[in-house]
Design a protein around this nucleic acid. Structure first.
Lengths: 352, 352
DNA sequence: CATCCGTGTGGGAACGATGTCACATCCCTT
DNA sequence: AAGGGATGTGACATCGTTCCCACACGGATG
């Protein structure tokens, strides 16, 4: 970003390498050699070329360069929902690290839809991106990209472990810690509110929950595992149903920030006091969790760093496309705050 | 996304139009005509070509197409801070509308830095994007992009009104409504916590604040206008200083969601009750504002729709590059909630 | 004096897709 | 029977960049 004035050259108004060559009185080859730094160029010629380029505000066309070199410096990032602070953080981390490594980031919000994800993946293939980072909505996307020769890193969720690199948080460990925190406080009826229990993330968190119950010699009650959709409204409805049951749980583990928001809102609407009536522990540390009172105990995972680590992995994969696939597991941390306390000394009052 | 198997063709392993032509037994031109839908093609030839393309999983190279056609279907989006839910919403809205209009979105988080913004702008020029949407960090970026023949829409902030299209919220109206809400409740010492008052957004919000004070026959006290930086930590420090003054204001208008978070946290730390000790009204409706108790009164602006409207404007601008510039002002809405109440009946207790 | 190297430069062929243009059919009209 | 439209196809130039190659110097070596 050096020159200010518009400088009409060629038909599109943007100066090409040919214009720079003409202005400097040399050939295109020489300009290319100077600008890319590959090959000889006499000192004064170099000076002339650089000055001409700066004066014209010349910016090389990446499309033409890509076409010739067949190697792209941009990566695609596919996230499920930018409005969810978790994915926004992840995207921000990926963007920062991508920039630091000289990549341009093409970001698409797949809106939790496998169809949009497929289309976006095809668009990225068309762009000939060097690689893709994806929080997959379906198992298909990684396979498709892989078959088209695009390096892929699955992040947060992992459908293709063993075939594809992955960067995930310690979901099982975190869920176990959260649940153990509740059992340690004396809770025996602990509900799990979760979006799904079959894919990796949900599966792992469910397993962690079960493991902690088992470790505390508690029997897992399937009725206490509530599956909610992906938005706050649905989570709130499900949580509301759960908390209105006569045999209400004394504690709830909400498996992500959206679900936690639903549970929190539901508890508030029902007039339940946290943690006096019901304890709440969440997964993901969203900003609101430390602003409400009491603040919400949660398992913190560093979404920003998840994005950073994914770009690092992708960069390594691009360098060595044939290396064995690697799954990186990032640490998580239980942050006990005010929303968890021992259960009420007596059983909750019986329904009318 | 139709085929599954890898199909090595050419040196990069990705099938080109030439491979499709060979497979279908026709020339490249014919394949192009079939695939683009422009020009003649006999029925059976068309069938053969389409089948071959599908079997090979052929995806046209956008770089080559762009190079030939000189017209791009991607737009750049430059936002200040993806971790701020306001910008994340905005980006999500832009992404959705871009997709709906057949654009690929290249998104960069400029991290509130003019330097990163400049670099990102240059990268977008190199990509030959059709247009750029930017929440500008400096006045330079729009001029630079404009001079390079790239259509620009400034969103949220507007440095180049008159030269460049803009999409902004009704900042002045909103700020006036927020402040008038406080004067209407009887407040006479109303502080404004704001990031800056010189650029359009900050300037307008400051003006709206002043107008409302004037309309209520209150004198504006410059000591009550506190300038804070762009992060929560700084806002919290400044707010803390403000709220510890002996002549503490009875109400605070925080000019955006980050500042409001800082004020909220500061008030909590100082043990001030909201709204009994101090009323708070914010700008931007972040999720936490309706989760804390009391919920925070705020001026709601629809960030998602701001992004949508910006893409619409940009699309129109790309169609008609020479048309007069347009600034779209989106409506805002005051949401009175629990954080605002009449001031304490007596003056706040004097300091020790 | 011929050869050879090091240094510096320009010509021209790619890269993949598009689209113009010319050509080659076939059938129908005059 | 000759002309001419309609229909269908392929050759080729083009977009902006890179980079391999050829070449042109000057000076040093054999």
């Amino acid at each position: 970003m050096t020159a200010e004035r518009p400088f009409p050259c060629g038909r599109s108004g943007r100066p090409t390498i040919k214009d720079v060559a003409a202005a400097a009185g040399v050939s295109r080859s020489t300009v290319s050699r100077v600008l890319t730094g590959r090959g000889y160029a006499a000192h004064d010629v170099r000076e002339r070329v650089l000055r001409a380029a700066a004066e014209l505000g010349y910016v090389p066309d990446v499309a033409a360069r890509l076409l010739k070199q067949q190697v792209s410096r941009s990566i695609g990032v596919l996230v499920s929902d930018l409005r969810n602070p978790f994915y926004a953080e992840l995207a921000a981390g990926a963007g920062r690290e991508a920039r630091a490594r000289g990549y341009t980031m093409v970001l698409t919000d797949t809106g939790l839809s496998a169809e949009i994800e497929d289309e976006a993946a095809e668009a990225l293939v068309a762009l000939r991106v060097a690689g893709v980072i994806v929080t997959p909505n379906s198992p298909a996307v990684s396979g498709y990209l892989g078959s088209r020769g695009v390096s892929v890193v699955e992040v947060d969720r992992q459908f293709a472990a063993g075939t594809t690199d992955g960067v995930v948080a310690g979901n099982r460990v975190g869920a176990r810690a959260a649940t153990a925190h509740l059992t340690g406080l004396g809770h025996r009826r602990i509900a799990l509110v979760i979006d799904e229990t079959e894919w990796t993330t949900g599966y792992e968190r469910h397993q962690g929950y079960l493991e902690a119950l088992h470790a505390a010699d508690l029997k897992a009650d399937p009725d206490l595992v509530v599956t909610a959709g992906w938005d706050v409204a649905d989570a709130r409805r499900r949580a509301s149903d759960l908390l209105r049951r006569p045999d209400r749980p004394t504690a709830v583990f909400a498996a992500n920030n959206v679900l936690a928001e639903g549970v929190w809102r539901a508890a508030g609407e029902l007039g339940l006091r946290v943690p006096a009536d019901v304890s709440l522990v969440a997964f993901d540390d969203a900003p609101w969790m430390s602003m409400v009172s009491p603040p919400v105990s949660t398992v913190e995972q560093d979404a920003f760093h998840l994005g950073v680590a994914a770009v690092r992995r992708l960069d390594a994969r691009i360098e060595l496309p044939e290396a064995d696939s690697v799954t990186t597991v990032l640490g998580v941390r239980l942050l006990p705050r005010g929303s968890t306390a021992p259960p009420p000394p007596v059983l909750p009052p019986p329904p009318l």
